[in-house]
Design a protein around this nucleic acid. Structure first.
Lengths: 222, 222, 222, 222
DNA sequence: TATGAATGAGCCTTCATTCAT
DNA sequence: GATGAATGAAGGCTCATTCAT
């Protein structure tokens, strides 16, 4: 597991620290989504969290810490949800399909927050950014692991050297539901979108042995 | 053609306005890439462009105008380059492959600038954002047009209703070279990346002449 | 009582707000008198009040608020002083004379500040201006009320429809000591000025007890 | 005649200077009335006058010069008009009445411009202010001269030492139609206002010999 | 621990004035 | 004489952060 960057707090009581930081995150997420990181003031964050600006600074050292806290929390939720959906007991190909569908649904659920990370993470200081990108990598890794398992169990036809890119492709084809929403939302329902995108991936890697079973792509269009 | 949002200038000489705005854009692109829109000051933009803050404001009305100028210029170059590469005389499928290769190369060439648009465009005022997204749409449209042409001439097998999503997928699979560079750059050369991504798309839509033989990745370009 | 326009403050402690605003007013009055509203900077106001520019803006929202605070404070003092001098127990005509003498003395005492209002109030935003003019009206009303009382008790001979104009005339004949000081100051002492101006008004409205003997100037104050 | 403050011009041709300055004044008067001296920019003045900012500065040295030009022009028109109305051939008392009526009408005609002087003259540099106040004095002098003539010819009963104040009172009672318009305009027509104010003055100074002719105040109300 | 008043560096923008053409 | 692009000092205001209570 990746080493979490620890943000110092003036307050000792760890229970309290955690509770307050949850309040900070909730407040900040809403504000960052609404107006972006730079246009949100620390005063607003504190106010929305329900305490004073002074108190806010008892739990963080700088405004950027809030952004880090937010990004980390979002990624955490994302990863949490994805890991839940992955059953290691099934065939790789089925596991993958299920994970993808689930992933796309999570993307839809967490639209605003995912968009937030994509647009604001760049404002993080170098070391925090590194950690956040690491989280992104971890999530991508989930898919790569499934791909590898599928190759192993023979349900997925893919060159080992391609698993890395393929996992990123899966991520990107899901994330685009978030950041190309302005163009896709008008024409596709979430279900249609999922259908199309999973087909694109699955057709590419499905073992073409069993004749006549290539219909999954074809079946999408009706 | 999309209506360009005109930014008023106090200076009347249009030749001069164009020249100065080019200077502004060049200066701002470098700064925005380096430190982002919000952390770049108008004074820095003016200084790097080689004139005073007063002069800067003879050519724009507000800092946001600079961001718009920058986004517009980048999109313009992007579109310009892509359109050059599209030959309408060939078969759709070949035209598409060529366009994709070219597009991915352009993405590579313009990495910083494309990333810039993706990270900062959200800070544009509503009306300007609309225009910029429109440009994005125009570019996507280029690919959709090729797809439609390919369907027409029989070289591409794709349901008409899927061309829209497919064109967006092409865009996204290219753009990821930019915003997932941190993860891809280490393992792939640009050529490899292009190879893989074009295969993914082309395999999906190529007319399956040879029954049952859906060729995968490797077979595409050589 | 006229509804006072409330100026929001970031500081919650109302005691402190009042204290700081008094400092702001004192500082601003001196500066506005010296160089006018537009030529006074917010930094100067803060410095003279003894705190930083940041602190100033904890107690106002915009520079114009300072002008409003100043105008309001001056009007308040004016009204306060005048009301003190009005005894309702005497005959209207005597009450009037006393009020006028007192008013003229107040004008003299508050020269600079009255001039300030006359020259700068126009720079107030519409709604604040309305309130300030309302205050002016209130003060004028004091005189009109005395006039009406005098008509009632028979000590003043004036058509009811003329009380309004007459009260304004009283105001103006007093205020001119302020804004025509440059011309009057050289030739008149305050006492002489008061003597003359009260005569002008009183002669006009005094019940002509002794037929045909409209006494002039000299008889007024003794 | 008072020495006019000369404003240097880079242009030699006096005809042209006069013409351009008239354009400047006309433009500036409109703008100053609309937004005040400080909120009007030199650019706006030049633009409204029909020439460039560079040209403006060929005819003035600083923005304040425009204010001076404007104040001077307004005062000049005021004096011009008043002098026209004064016939030295009649009795002082009649001449005065006529002059007052005329003066009040002029105040009404020139409301905006008179208000302008009253609100902005303070922004003039010391020496220019002195000249402008001198002009004000000149105009007041017109009334004092009539008063003196009336005392001479026996038609006016006033102590010589009071003529100065009385002339100022006349000015002020007229000017208040301008700067108390917000309170008077609703209740009085210009004619009523003139009637009342002239009565106030005339009753004070009319020779009380001819018994029963003190009715002028009384007669106002019908 | 919590509070919130105080701070001041720094930002965006304006505009009177100049001067080369 | 006329033009208008260039200048940069200066102004109003914001906001992350601190610290005494």
């Amino acid at each position: 597991m990746r080493e979490k960057k620890q943000i110092p707090s003036l307050v000792k009581d760890q229970k309290l620290v955690q509770k307050r930081r949850e309040q900070i995150i909730e407040s900040a997420v809403a504000l960052f989504i609404e107006k972006g990181f730079f246009k949100t003031t620390t005063r607003e964050i504190a106010a929305k969290a329900g305490f004073s600006i002074g108190t806010l600074y008892e739990y963080i050292e700088a405004k950027e810490d809030v952004l880090y806290l937010v990004c980390d929390a979002i990624h955490h939720e994302l990863e949490e949800r994805l890991l839940q959906s992955v059953k290691d007991t099934r065939k790789g190909i089925d596991s993958l399909q299920e994970a993808m569908v689930y992933f796309f649904q999570v993307m839809n659920d967490m639209q605003d927050r995912v968009l937030l990370i994509y647009q604001e993470a760049k404002s993080l200081p170098k070391d925090m950014l590194r950690y956040v990108l690491g989280k992104e990598k971890d999530i991508t890794q989930i898919f790569e692991n499934i791909l590898l398992r599928g190759i192993e169990d023979g349900s997925i036809a893919l060159d080992r050297k391609d698993t890395h890119l393929m996992s990123h492709n899966i991520m990107v084809l899901g994330e685009m539901w978030v950041f190309r929403r302005w163009a896709l939302g008008k024409q596709f329902s979430l279900e249609e979108f999922i259908q199309e995108q999973t087909s694109l991936i699955l057709n590419q890697i499905r073992k073409p042995k069993e004749e006549g079973k290539i219909e999954s792509t074809g079946s999408v269009s009706n």
